[in-house]
């Protein structure tokens, strides 16, 4: 029983996040529309953004900071909503015509 379940699992390997986000179109602007004040993040106990951001844009660094990307951003607003430290994440929309372009959403 367990072997057949394992065999079935074999046929459906987990999808890498890079492949997943690679399916979405982003017309990236050269200027970042997100900025993170890393010094604020160093004191943040929860770091909700790391888990919550659906685009996985926030990555913890070994020295307690946060590394962020803005390129493959859904522009959803989850990060600043879950951010419990006032002002750590500054977020606006990218310049008109840039950023995410959905097709089958």
């Amino acid at each position: 029983m367990s072997t057949s379940a394992e065999a079935a699992h074999e046929h459906w390997p987990p999808q890498s996040f890079e492949d997943l986000i690679g399916t979405t179109r982003f017309d990236v602007h050269e200027r970042a529309h997100i900025t993170v004040d890393d010094t604020v993040c160093r004191g943040c106990p929860s770091r909700e953004c790391i888990v919550a951001c659906p685009a996985k844009l926030f990555v913890p660094t070994s020295d307690g900071g946060i590394l962020f990307n803005y390129e493959q951003c859904f522009e959803c607003g989850t990060c600043y909503l879950v951010c419990n430290r006032e002002g750590a994440i500054t977020w606006s929309y990218p310049e008109g015509g840039h950023g995410v372009v959905f097709k089958r959403s």
Binding site: P14, F17, D19, L20, I21, T23, P54, F74, F102, S105
Partner: peptide
């Protein structure tokens, strides 16, 4: 995305979705 992955692997959902190819991943608040 891990939560969606878990959903897709649920025995009641998997037969509906397996063998499909992901065309787009999206999110919105």
């Amino acid at each position: 995305e891990e939560i969606i992955d878990g959903l897709k692997r649920h025995p009641a959902i998997r037969p509906l979705v397996e063998d499909g190819e992901v065309k787009e991943y999206s999110a919105h608040v």
